[in-house]
Nucleic acid binder design. Structure first.
Lengths: 336, 336
DNA sequence: CGGCGCTGGTCAAGCGCTTAACCATGATCA
DNA sequence: TGATCATGGTTAAGCGCTTGACCAGCGCCG
């Protein structure tokens, strides 16, 4: 392995000077700099990140903590991750996906090892135990999602209020007056701590009331099968419905296939609109009209917010809440 | 930060002894060991992985290199990753997902920094340039997938021969005689270097010939849309077909929805069988009968093979090729 | 022309751990 | 009883880099 010492020797300078060139931390005359850079390329030098991390007490690694067990890693998550990794790379950081449990145990282990400078937390619960872990260990972190109490917490999230307003507004504009919201499963204890459901549902009730629309909410757990079953209930209990708004991406695919299976023509007889990533929307038939989750934006913003914090820069200016934007597919049309 | 020095002082031993206890590298009397362990818990000691890595020249981090741009990170990939991470953890390693380009550039950067002990390579191409990078830098690695020439390369992969034999055998056993294989897109230059397509298609031609079945292969790129379009071509050009075997998971979803849309009843009129992960199968309507990709097995095996290599243990014994197993859904039945 | 501040460099002390080499002790045995 | 040896421990030299402290040289100014 070629080290800075080798480079320094070859360039006829001290090892410290090499470091200054490498990190641009102190002025170096162009001539010296050139000699050093030449030596580096000649020797094929690559700085050892581990040594650097030990000496500087910064690894420049950011972990994206993903609760692998509680949530499937779907397309939305992939979007977060890819864009976050890209944002990190641009700032000379590494972002790695780290599967952790949701209870905080593995997270404690992870941050205790001083392996990562900070953590981007995904799928944040309204009262997430992992946050206490990070605070206790003084690990810088950023949330994708929000807790209930978030004074001072760096976070980015979907603007569910605006999203739901736009979604309902769009359907209302098409002429729909009989809507159903397919939300999460109330029986699931996680439901009540899962921000997207709680916030969207609240927004929906508010917005629907504003339009003078009856607020019908159907429970449905987050799987395609559950979605199909929800479609059955929907047609049975609320046959007059002309449009469905689905919050979960898997449920939405299920609702689509359930309605198809029951012979409903989408969008002629009934419209379906869902909150999801476009990759997922492409899986359904017909392709879903969606409120496109701002995955790339959130991944990038979350990472940037964290890095600013790590570098002691000024916090990321608002907005921290990004609405999902309407993305037309073929699953919505005026009511029959 | 609590260091080994603190622990040593408190336990009244030398720092080396603490290290021996921590790593179990030299015998220590139970009494001393206990004092040290007590001191560790009292102080809340967590070993600093960075320092350990520098001193031992081993980071105990394995990167799973994923070509984020060339392949969507779908459910199959998620399966690989989750199981690989689990396997790594059990051996006291960390496995992280590292998005890299497919050309080897980012990979060079990654391994040059001595940040990872080894690499698990996913989505290996038949002549993958990344492999040269790893060999040149003497980075231990394991492949999930196979190159054409793989003497001495640690790898695990799907046993496409057996898988296709079983798949065709199953359909033949149901009575199907008119099959179509939906494979990759020949026009895509990546097709010819992508093992799963090349190997499966070869196996299919062989097996079909064995059964005396006409070998019809339909091209289709890897998206739902392309799959739907393939369904159209299928019905137009080969209306007598009674069963379809689809290699790509997204294509398969498209084929399903395309057939549905064109009014074909699955499985009564036509059977569909695909190679994919069960999570994906659940997205289609009716649920697909699949040859279940052995994602969890491959992720685990690949990681274990790599770790053995890292520890200088005996190589993982065969089998290194795992067949996908039939997983009954509702998309297959005897021909009409 | 002596003192001063800049500039561009060197020196050396770590960062927190691993590990080869070495040593004290007491049991074992010819 | 002294040589031998296994056992359980210590000492200290790094691993490759960062960074505060220091210093030589030089132009500038009163």
């Amino acid at each position: 392995m070629v080290t800075m010492r080798d480079v320094a020797k070859r360039a006829g300078v001290s090892i410290a000077t090499v470091s200054f060139v490498l990190n641009d931390t102190k002025p170096v005359t162009p001539a010296t700099r050139e000699r050093i850079e030449l030596a580096m390329t000649e020797l094929g030098f690559r700085r050892n990140m581990v040594a650097r991390a030990l000496a500087s007490r910064r690894t420049r690694i950011i972990a994206m903590a993903y609760p692998a067990l509680d949530h499937r890693f779907g397309f939305s998550a992939a979007e977060f991750f890819t864009s976050a990794a890209e944002a990190a790379r641009q700032q000379d950081y590494h972002l790695v996906l780290w599967p952790v449990g949701n209870d905080g145990g593995e997270l404690t282990e992870l941050v205790g090892q001083s392996l990562v400078d900070g953590v981007v937390l995904m799928e944040v619960q309204l009262d997430d135990p992992r946050i206490a872990v990070l605070q206790r260990t003084r690990t810088p972190f950023a949330l994708i999602g929000r807790t209930t109490a978030l004074e001072g917490l760096t976070h980015v999230d979907i603007d569910f209020d605006t999203t739901v307003e736009d979604a309902v507004g769009y359907l209302h504009g098409l002429g729909h007056r009989r809507l159903v919201l397919v939300s999460g499963d109330l029986a699931d204890p996680r439901f009540h701590t899962y921000g997207p459901y709680v916030r969207s549902e609240a927004a929906y009730r508010r917005v629907a009331a504003g339009y003078g629309i009856e607020t019908i909410v159907l429970e449905c757990s987050d799987s395609t099968r559950a979605g199909r079953e929800a479609a059955t209930r929907l047609l049975r209990d609320h046959p007059e419905t002309t449009a469905v708004l689905v919050l979960n991406e898997y449920s939405a695919l299920g609702v689509m296939s359930g309605l198809n299976r029951l012979g409903r023509r989408i969008p002629d007889e009934i419209s379906v609109l869902s909150l999801m990533a476009p990759d997922t929307a492409a899986l359904s038939n017909p392709e879903l009209t969606i409120m496109r989750t701002p995955g790339p934006e959130l991944g990038r913003l979350g990472t940037e917010a964290l890095i600013r914090q790590l570098e002691g820069a000024t916090p990321l200016p608002p907005p921290h809440l990004i609405p999902a934007k309407l993305h037309l597919g073929e699953s919505t049309a005026p009511p029959p």
